[in-house]
Design a protein around this nucleic acid. Structure first.
Lengths: 298, 298
DNA sequence: GCGAATGGAGACCGAAGGGCTCCTGGGCGG
DNA sequence: CCGCCCAGGAGCCCTTCGGTCTCCATTCGC
């Protein structure tokens, strides 16, 4: 009972004649006869009574007719839906980001996106970068806009968009604030307030200190930069925060060390087909790319 | 986009693997690959992303999945409905009968039928026999239980069930009532009250008189035997009525003429498939057949 | 890091199906 | 009563579809 047979059945039922159904289907009449015969064999019942010149539906035919019509309409509908998919932006977009990016980078983008594509249901998740990476890998996320990992999974396509310069900061009344030029081991004399040990940003910092043969004196950590900033401001220790987050509320230390940057960008799965909604989002993200971010992030 | 492809698509989507889908469908894995490939070519979009070991749906796949499921459910449902048709009695039964039969022969049958098959919606029409014949011929009626025509259309299957012996009757105070043995031409001296000129019963009567070279002196006619009986009872003329209808209320004349019988029975279209509801009705009608009616009616 | 295992896809082949042409047969109208 | 219309059957051919074999990529274990 495939769509071909049902189509033949419908054509015959509606035209009231095998021959007319045939020309309507661009087939010959015997072909239509065969299709109906196949269908009748499958269901083990006659669908039409052949009476003289005309035909009429049997009870089985009357039973099948509305269902056949419904099935074919649905098939046609599916075909059309798939055809319209080409180019149309719709459906839902599952997107993950970090709190920091979601708060400081994405708002204007998301606003523009939802205005440009109101049919898209945005499914926005705030996740740690590691979870976001995993989500993109296993397909539960289409896009993640996060801190970029230093050695990303080869399955992932990683596009840097922005670079955060991380500044060493402390509260204005912190002992370090009164010092002049510092180097890393001097920092180690004081407690640090840093992102969680499994974050990429923490990894960046740890790497720098490890390279200098130092261990970080971390007093406490949290994954939310806003919280880190607050804890630093009340004097719990020094921290390393994006400079745009500090904005005078904290004292920025001058450290005798090359500046630390962290790349932010989006990741998508390399071999997964992106939805149109996702492609539109990527286009917007690309348009928001900072100059030189690409080179800096690589 | 036929049901086979959709089934393969659904199996792959649900099992998450071409191979598992294959064994589920009792096919080999390449066959499933091919079906999906055909489907993907038809809709000109990939349905699955093949990533390493596993697969995942693309946007097109996600769009198609619920529709495919719905379509297949509907196909399955149709198949089951057609399967259940075999043997199950339901739907509606369009049945025609004459007033006389409907009043005097069918009531117990209809009562038993509706009790045995409460799911059947009885669509009962009271029609003149000629209209009923036409209705069965053109398919607007499944069964007609009527006075049987002498020369039925060859498309019709005609089954005699009962025989009405028609008796010549008049009112007890009618001039004829006092006479003894009569012959046909004596009857012609008095007005008759008979069924309408186009009824089969009327035809039977006319034929007898015509064979004797007589013309019927019809005062008035109506198609309802009950009305004829009433009109006869009030003395408007003599009539020819089923003896079981008379039951002492009228005077039965003794006529020097072989008795007139009219066959009652059902007619169905010879080449039309009967619904189960109709077959069940026919079985009941056959069970109610009077002995010898079959022979007498032929 | 290399080999084995797993899973999908392509090449090829055989069988089946489905379409076409031609023809038959039954009904219906002239 | 003959011709026409229309459904169905026969034979033929090509397409399709499924199976086997094989390849290739990925992944997992050692």
């Amino acid at each position: 009972m495939d769509t071909q047979s049902l189509q033949a059945f419908l054509a015959v039922a509606e035209s009231g004649s095998f021959s007319r159904a045939a020309e309507q289907l661009h087939l010959t009449q015997p072909a239509v006869s065969k299709r109906i015969a196949v269908l009748e064999n499958q269901i083990d019942a006659r669908l039409f009574d052949r009476i003289g010149r005309g035909i009429s539906l049997t009870e089985a035919g009357r039973l099948l007719l509305p269902r056949a019509r419904q099935i074919l309409v649905m098939v046609d509908d599916s075909r059309r839906a798939l055809g319209n998919l080409e180019g149309s932006v719709g459906g839902s977009l599952t997107l993950a980001t970090s709190h920091h990016i979601g708060l400081h980078r994405l708002p204007p983008l998301l606003k523009a996106y939802t205005r440009a594509h109101p049919e898209v249901r945005l499914d926005l998740h705030f996740l740690d970068s590691e979870e976001a990476y995993q989500g993109v890998l296993d397909g539960s996320l289409e896009i993640a806009v996060v801190t970029l990992a230093p050695h990303p999974d080869p399955h992932l396509e990683v596009e840097p968009l922005w670079v955060d310069r991380l500044g060493f900061v402390c509260a204005h009344d912190h002992p370090l604030a009164s010092r002049g030029r510092l180097d890393l081991h001097e920092l180690c004399e004081f407690d640090a307030v840093l992102p969680g040990p499994l974050t990429f940003t923490r990894g960046l910092i740890e790497a720098r200190f490890a390279a200098a043969g130092l261990r970080l004196p971390v007093a406490l950590s949290t994954n939310y930069l806003e919280t880190l900033k607050m804890m630093t401001a009340i004097g719990l220790g020094w921290s390393l925060l994006p400079e745009r987050l500090v904005a005078g509320e904290l004292h920025e230390l001058t450290i005798d060390h090359p500046p630390i940057h962290r790349p932010l960008g989006y990741i998508v799965h390399r071999s997964r087909t992106l939805s149109n909604a996702a492609r539109a989002m990527l286009a917007m993200l690309e348009a928001a790319r900072e100059p030189f971010a690409r080179a800096a992030g690589r």
